[in-house]
């Protein structure tokens, strides 16, 4: 499927795929538990977000995937069942072999993609006429961005000195 035909994917088709996504989750049963070292993220979420994180964050010299993933995990842990379900649905839809190609335009496994292929995927969803995809684009970007820029390692490079130091000192005194 080329980019054009992907963009033409009708809303009906998107819904159909969402339904297949539902059965994908069913088939995914073996992988519905949190991955080793995480409270929320499952294996397929880790694969999905590991591929996306570097593309979303861009050339930040201090970027550390492990920190970013753990930060995202903590955010999702504090969110709600409804929010977690949305993220799981998205990751299932995008990683399950049958739905991955038609939904994301990504036909090979996420682990094997080049940066420009991931960027192309994000662009497709960003510009899609299908609300479901635009929502996915927004969700992916916002979660990754909030998770990374919430950790102190991210701050120096963007000119944020962090909370005033004297506060910390006062507290300790």
């Amino acid at each position: 499927m080329n980019r054009r035909s992907f963009l033409k994917l009708s809303f009906g088709a998107a819904l159909l795929l969402a339904t297949i996504g539902g059965s994908a989750r069913f088939l995914h049963r073996a992988r519905r538990h949190p991955a080793e070292g995480y409270d929320v993220l499952r294996d397929q979420d880790v694969i999905f977000f590991s591929a996306l994180f570097p593309a979303v964050i861009g050339p930040h010299p201090q970027f550390q995937l492990s920190l970013a993933l753990r930060s995202l995990d903590r955010m999702l842990l504090a969110s709600s069942p409804a929010m977690r379900k949305e993220v799981f649905n998205l990751a299932d839809l995008a990683t399950f072999a049958i739905t991955r190609g038609p939904v994301t335009g990504v036909w090979r496994g996420w682990q094997h993609l080049q940066d420009d292929q991931i960027r192309a995927f994000l662009k497709r969803w960003q510009h899609s006429r299908v609300g479901l995809y635009r929502q996915g684009y927004q969700g992916i970007c916002q979660l990754c961005q909030m998770a990374w820029y919430g950790v102190p390692q991210a701050w120096h490079n963007i000119g944020y000195p962090g909370p005033p130091e004297f506060l910390t000192r006062l507290r300790e005194s």
Binding site: V56, I57, G58, P59, Q145, A147, Y149, W155, G159, Y160
Partner: peptide, 25 residues
């Protein structure tokens, strides 16, 4: 304009998002 919440409002991703974040201050 603390960075985590603002990062979610800068728009775009990758290079462009990073450039915008560098202008946070």
């Amino acid at each position: 304009m603390q960075p985590s919440i603002v990062s979610a409002l800068m728009g775009e991703f990758g290079d462009q998002h990073y450039q915008r974040m560098q202008q946070l201050a």
